[in-house]
């Protein structure tokens, strides 16, 4: 079981409120991703849940019991760190068995569990090696193995893929998702990469300056961003946010159009000059300087062949324009 509830959790370092107050409910079995720019407090929030930091005020409730004052070891949570934090002087086997040893588990049972975890994670051949002799991906798996043997109420991941190269990152992303599907244990995953958030999460929590900007499923956030921050953060390439007369014409302070929701048309729309054109084969990314809405990014199909200096007309697809008020919030 792993239902985690945060009630008005606040954290300040001296005078600085890093987290001014967060309310959040994470259901048992959910895969929740905390995402936001660096310094937004997402890692701090995770460490508060882990018990590695004290909460200044508020309560953390795990499975109905108040865990706010419990030390990390007593919370029944396992954590995978950004640097993996493997014990370099222990073999893979000893690393995986360490939490069981600390819990005083009998050695036979501990070995059995470690072997089982190793099998799931394809580590059986490496059990007697030390972390220094493993590749980045293997180390990552050992860190996960160390977490799963404890059968925790929830897994906490702190940017676990940021030290891997791009290809491996995609692989590990899929492995963690599959692991979640087979274990069905609550996972809380911190990342600054919105692609990871979109692909892995059941529920995304977008954080900015210690506050929750929006909580929702990936598609809900994509389709209906609650404010300009979420609009700009979720989705790649970034949404074009346009202010001025074009926005005012629609009764908004800011309007947003995603690059993929702009079409290249023969006439009408916003006219402009292509500044940069990147042909990826499947897609063409354009940077267009327009007369009416400034410089905007466009994601066109791969068949669109344009060169810098070409003049184009761009039209937003109907119903795909997001409107935001003076306070930055979405207008309905």
């Amino acid at each position: 079981m792993g239902k985690i509830v945060l009630n008005a959790v606040r954290k300040s370092f001296g005078e600085v409120d890093v987290i001014p107050g967060v309310d959040l409910t994470i259901e048992d079995g959910e895969f929740v991703v905390f995402v936001g720019p660096s310094g937004c407090g997402k890692s701090t929030l995770l460490r508060l849940i882990a018990g590695l930091e004290d909460t200044t005020s508020g309560a953390i409730v795990i499975d109905g019991a108040d865990a706010t004052a419990l030390p990390p070891a007593k919370r029944g949570l396992a954590m995978v760190f950004q640097s993996y934090a493997l014990y370099p002087h222990m073999t893979v086997r000893k690393n995986i068995m360490f939490p069981l040893k600390m819990a005083g588990m009998e050695i036979g049972e501990a070995t059995r569990r470690a072997d089982a975890a190793a099998k799931v994670l394809n580590l059986t051949a490496y059990m007697e090696r030390r972390p220094g002799q493993l590749s980045g991906g293997q180390r990552q798996r050992v860190a996960i193995g160390r977490a799963i043997v404890r059968e925790p109420a929830a897994f906490l991941f702190d940017e676990p893929l940021s030290n891997l190269d791009a290809a491996l990152r995609v692989n590990m992303r899929q492995e963690i998702t599959e692991l979640h599907q087979s274990l069905k244990t609550t996972m809380i995953y911190v990342t600054h990469d919105q692609v990871e958030a979109m692909t892995m999460a059941d529920k995304i929590v977008v954080l900015n300056a210690g506050r929750i900007e929006q909580v929702g499923s990936p598609l809900a956030l994509y389709n209906n961003p609650g404010n300009t921050f979420v609009a700009g953060f979720i989705g790649s390439p970034k949404m074009n946010l346009i202010e001025g007369p074009e926005a005012a014409a629609l009764g908004a302070t800011t309007i947003g159009v995603r690059p993929e929701h702009l079409s290249v048309v023969s006439e009408g729309g916003w006219e402009g000059v292509v500044g940069l054109s990147e042909h990826l084969g499947s897609d063409t990314f354009l940077k267009v300087t327009t007369d009416r809405v400034g410089t905007i990014n466009v994601r066109a199909g791969g068949e669109v062949i344009l060169r810098p200096g070409d003049r184009v007309h761009l039209a937003p697809q109907p119903g795909k324009i997001h409107r935001f008020g003076a306070d930055g919030k979405a207008m309905t």
């Binding site: 990390p72 070891a73 493997l86 360490f98 600390m102």
Partner: peptide
């Protein structure tokens, strides 16, 4: 790295 000691703490080490 202090992360390693934190990992030990998460793993239940006193």
């Amino acid at each position: 790295p202090s992360e390693i000691l934190e990992a030990a703490r998460m793993d239940g080490a006193s």
